[in-house]
Design a protein around this nucleic acid. Structure first.
Length: 1013
RNA sequence: GGGCCAUUAGCUCAGUUGGCUAGAGCGCAGGUAUCACACACCUGAGGUCACAGGUUCGAGCCCUGUAUGGCCCACCA
């Protein structure tokens, strides 16, 4: 393999070669048995819906930085990649494609089998899954690809079924009728998080509901106001609605109990127009705001979340008689799953909801019951998947009971066992989880983990209903005792009324039991699980759970989770819950579900006996391990927005494919730039432009590209110096000031990077690399080294320092720009294998691959060099400054005399005379503690010294220059005097600060005085 | 309505427990084909730190309020 560096940096060539080498040599492969403390990250699995964009790229880049850094630092490191099957999202795109390309629905092609929808989605998965993996590879991700998981693969499926079984057996899963968000296009329920609001122009219809028996035997005979005047009782109640068709499902009208206009009517009835049903007038002080509108609200429990809550409030508590005044109300579903009015809608049955609305408004108008219609803008929830309006819909769904699972997950964040970076994001986690709302986990989809429960309709009399699981088992006499150990059973009464089912959950790996059950009339639930159910298990399922594997033992809990803030609740919180549930925490007092218990005693968890209290003694690691948390740290990466501040998305067309950026700028440039943007501020603005080839990219990445080019050129230069050079033993006593300085600066950069990475400040790390390498190393050290390398007496030591600092820089920067550093490393190894400065810059050496080299340690600082060198920089800049101001020809040296403050300073200047002369293009004529100003010279101050520069006379420029400086000094002196005149400052500020101010004042006054001479 | 965040140079952003004349990149102005690099080098201009109060010897930073923008949650029938 040729290692010499071509003149121009070509990212594409460099990247392809380096990545192939890492793959060929299995540099990413991890082994749990290898030595070193475990360090593990599981990737947030991208949705297989489509291709990755820059949001994924920043997330992956930051993970790779951590992975590579820890791998170099000697940890036994693994990064587990994978992809999410993304249930509803993926099914939706494939169904859409099916519709567009073949004009078919999923019902036309069927679920399973050849040409079925599931097969088609797998084909999609193959295509996009591969594309995603390739994108990650182009980014340079050092994932252990042999461990790539898919949330729907066998390994994940097994974990899903075990978890479901465990939850089912523990009574944490139940089936119930719930009002869900129904997507009538996809015919599935979707979660709240998959809904977006859209403003829709519609109307507010005011409808009259005639009151029955208005003056009849109600409890209140008259409606009285505070003044005792009698209001006439109206004959009808006016309700306002944006959805008149739902009145077909009204089962009450509600008023406020303290509303004098209406409280007399409580207990009476209204005659529902069109259908003629009699429905009660009820009091509900939660639903009704008496100050709003007419004070009357129609109640449609089956089609409105608030109304459903009313229905729930009026349900009798089990075992308790109904309370007077809060009698239960009816629940009438008026919709079919595809959004048409059902048989409960009488004459409107069969109409689509919009048609029904139109017809109902017409009929109401005809009957004179439509009081008014006014324009209205409503926020209507739409399905993020099908982009159609969602319908609140009553259906049978599976739920996870959250309270017992959420509590421990809250506690580990409260007590700091799990830490968020930045910390404030923990609040969102705590707030959401604190609500402990039950988690609806069933989806009426075909793409996903099928719910592993087989259902039997209970045909016997209710009185004979088995009261415990033992008796339920009697209903399955065909199962042996042994087989009985692999099932769990529940009696289910969804909605409290109607049919009763017996549900049997079977542990995975028992197909013979499944078929036995099916032969005996059991039917597997057709629904699949919410996609987050499988992602929730990601950290332990990918490591082999439910088996007790070496991987789990080595790498669980994982070290850190890096993700975007939008899924803190959906994903992070659920991983913590299921992780603790499966890996450590045993809920002691969960609320058992109906018919819970029984089943198997199989132990899923390799940590069977966690301490009962979370505030365990011991290290965070010990506690975390015992509790089974999935990770210790959660680092939130910023969201990437486009130039207008809008979120990137495919549908908006403002998304950027990282591969496009890699093609225009290079992967290292992309990574470096993204890292600099990973600040603690929430969002990153990324102006997007389209280049000539139609690629979406951004000038922002010039930053990273320029840096890489700089690194390439500087390395090429340094290495070219070693090609014909014979190394000499390191001899620190012959180092120059610049040598000491650059090594010390390097060590500072390492220390800064370590500290930054520990708290996930990738921007600080990137900046430390940038400032050190470009500003210190290239701008100053390399320039200082040039003359030294030409001097045979000094070349040897200079080469030692130059080579070793380059070596250290490559190691320091490898995690952020891996391709280019690796490539340069190979050449450096070849040309200059010996690189080590004992005590100053260690751990160097010619490890064949940089990816496996040692992460730099912080060597000794040189305070003296770090103090003196900047003063020389100041002097050089001051001279350059004058040269520029006076427009001196760039090649023409100027004569400079330096009046240095004291013998030591004089000495330092003389020692570094060459540095000053070359970098400032000048000749030092005289350097002493009291140099007389040469005639016709310009006087400037720098680093406490006075410089006299000859041969640049330009009276006009000089006048301007002096005037400007005088102004600055006068202003500064005024500030300093004011500060020193402040008695409080003298009394209370630290003495060294006061002294500093005095020194500063003296210096400024002295300079001003000389300027005036 | 509740909560979180932001507001610093023309633009995009840093600024750590309050303490030197508030920084970077891009852009801008002037200069430079110098043998690593014009994707570069040298120099410079540019800021009332959103606004109003307060605490303090001292505030970009802490407190209170206001304005503007963004996000999350709950949402009026």
């Amino acid at each position: 393999m040729p290692t010499d560096l071509p003149k121009t940096y070509d990212p594409a060539a460099v990247e392809a070669q380096a990545y192939q080498t890492w793959l060929d040599e299995k540099c990413f492969a991890a082994d749990a048995a290898a030595p070193g403390e475990g360090y593990c990250i599981v990737i947030p699995p991208p949705n297989v819906t489509g291709a990755l964009h820059l949001g994924h790229a920043i997330n992956a880049t930051l993970q790779d930085i951590l992975i590579r850094m820890h791998r170099m630092a000697g940890y036994n490191t693994v990064w587990i990649p994978g992809i999410d099957h993304a249930g509803i999202a993926t099914q939706a795109v494939v169904e859409k494609q099916l519709k567009e390309q073949e004009n078919k629905t999923r019902h036309d092609v069927g679920r399973e089998g050849k040409g079925g929808l599931v097969e088609r989605i797998w084909a999609w998965k193959q295509q996009y899954g591969d594309r995603i993996i390739n994108q990650l590879k182009r980014l340079g991700c050092s994932c252990d690809w042999d461990r790539t998981r898919f949330t729907l693969d066998e390994m994940c499926a097994r974990a899903v079924r075990h978890t479901f079984f465990k939850l089912f057996k523990d009574g944490f899963i139940y089936r119930g009728k719930r009002l869900v968000n129904w997507d009538i296009f996809l015919q599935t329920s979707i979660s709240d998080d998959e809904i977006y609001k859209e403003t829709v122009k519609t109307s507010m219809w005011h409808i009259a509901y005639p009151i029955e028996n208005r003056d009849g035997d109600g409890s209140a005979s008259e409606s009285k106001t505070g003044t005792g005047t009698v209001s006439p009782r109206p004959a009808q109640m006016i309700v306002a609605t944006t959805r008149p068709e739902t009145m077909l499902g009204d089962t009450a009208v509600a008023v406020h109990s303290q509303d004098p206009r209406w409280n007399w009517a409580i207990g009476k009835h209204v005659r529902l127009p069109l259908t003629g049903r009699l429905i009660p007038i009820i009091a509900d002080d939660i639903l009704v705001d008496p100050k709003f509108g007419t004070g009357v609200v129609k109640v449609t429990p089956a089609h409105d979340p608030n109304d459903y809550a009313v229905w729930q409030r009026r349900q009798p508590k089990p075992g308790q008689p109904a309370v007077s005044g809060v009698e239960p109300i009816d629940l009438i579903n008026i919709l079919t799953p595809d959004g048409k009015i059902n048989e409960n809608g009488g004459p409107y049955a069969g109409l689509k909801r919009d048609a029904a609305r139109k017809k109902i408004v017409e009929d109401l108008t005809a009957q004179g019951l439509l009081v008014k219609e006014e324009p209205h803008e409503a926020q209507v929830g739409h399905s993020d998947r099908s982009k159609t309006p969602i319908e609140p819909y009553l259906s049978d769904q599976w739920f996870v009971h959250m309270a017992p699972l959420a509590e421990p997950a809250l506690e580990v964040v409260r007590n700091g066992t799990i830490k968020f970076y930045p910390e404030r994001h923990a609040q969102q986690y705590l707030a959401w989880l604190g609500e402990k709302r039950d988690w609806p986990i069933s989806r009426q989809l075909w793409w996903g983990h099928r719910i592993p429960v087989w259902m039997f309709l209970w045909n016997g009399p209710h009185a004979d209903l088995p009261s415990d699981s033992q008796q339920v088992r009697m209903e399955l006499p065909y199962l042996t005792n042994e087989q009985n150990q692999t099932i769990a059973v529940q009696v289910m009464r969804p909605g409290g009324k109607g049919d009763i089912f017996i549900g049997v959950c079977v542990l995975p790996g028992n197909p013979e039991i499944e078929s036995l059950i099916e032969k005996n009339g059991g039917r597997q639930d057709p629904d699949v699980l919410d996609t987050w159910f499988s992602s929730a298990l990601w950290p332990h399922s990918t490591l082999g759970w439910p088996d007790s594997t070496p991987d789990l033992d080595k790498w669980y809990p994982t070290s850190v989770l890096l993700t975007g803030r939008d899924i803190i609740t959906l994903w992070v919180a659920r991983m913590v819950m299921t992780g603790m549930y499966n890996m450590g925490f045993a809920p002691s007092s969960g609320t058992p579900g109906e018919g819970g218990g029984g089943g198997t005693t199989e132990q899923c968890s390799p940590h069977p006996n966690p301490p009962p209290e979370y505030q365990g003694r011991g290290s965070r690691q010990e506690v975390g391990r015992a509790l089974g948390i999935p990770f210790y740290d959660v680092a939130i990466n910023p969201t990437i927005l486009d130039g207008k501040g809008e979120r990137m998305s495919k549908s908006k067309g403002n998304g950027v494919d990282p591969v496009d950026v890699i093609d225009t700028h290079g992967a290292d440039a992309l990574r470096f730039t993204l890292a600099t943007m990973a600040t603690e501020t929430q969002d990153v603005r990324m102006p997007v432009k389209k280049d000539a080839q139609g690629r979406n990219t951004s000038d922002k990445f010039d930053l990273g590209r320029n840096f890489c080019t700089k690194l390439w050129n500087a390395s090429k230069f340094a290495i070219s110096n070693f090609e014909s050079q014979i190394p000499v033993p390191v001899d620190e006593s012959n180092w120059s000031l610049a040598d000491h300085w650059i090594i010390s600066r390097f060590n500072r950069a390492v220390a800064e990077s370590d500290a930054a990475l520990k708290v996930y400040r990738f921007d600080v790390y990137a900046k430390a690399c940038y400032d050190f390498f470009w500003r210190d190393f290239c701008d100053w050290y390399v320039e200082a080294a040039k003359p030294a390398m030409k001097d045979p007496k000094r070349a040897g030591q200079t080469a030692n320092v130059l080579a070793t600092v380059l070596d250290g820089s490559l190691r320091l920067m490898h995690p952020i720009i891996p391709f280019i550093t690796e490539t340069i490393w190979w050449r450096l190894n070849e040309v200059r294998p010996e690189r080590e400065l004992p005590g100053r810059l260690e751990g160097s050496g010619n490890t064949p691959r940089l990816i496996k080299a040692k992460w730099p340690t912080v060597g000794a600082f040189c305070e003296d060099a770090e103090h003196v060198f900047p003063k020389l920089q100041e002097i050089i800049v001051a001279i350059r400054n004058v040269r520029n101001d006076y427009k001196v020809d760039v090649k023409k040296p100027v004569k400079v005399s330096i009046n240095a403050p004291g013998e030591e300073a004089t000495q330092k200047v003389l020692e570094n005379r060459e540095l000053i002369e070359i970098l400032a293009t000048c000749r030092l004529i005289a350097v002493a503690p009291a140099v007389a100003p040469p005639a016709d010279s310009i006087r400037v101050s720098a680093a406490g010294a006075e410089l006299f520069i000859e041969g640049v006379i330009d009276p006009e420029a000089e006048k301007q220059r002096g005037g400007k400086r005088r102004e600055e000094l006068t202003k500064l002196i005024a500030t300093l005097i004011a500060r020193l005149n402040n008695a409080g400052y003298i009394a209370k500020a630290p003495p060294e600060l006061v002294q500093q101010t005095k020194d500063q004042l003296a210096a400024a006054e002295a300079e001003l005085q000389k300027l005036d001479q």
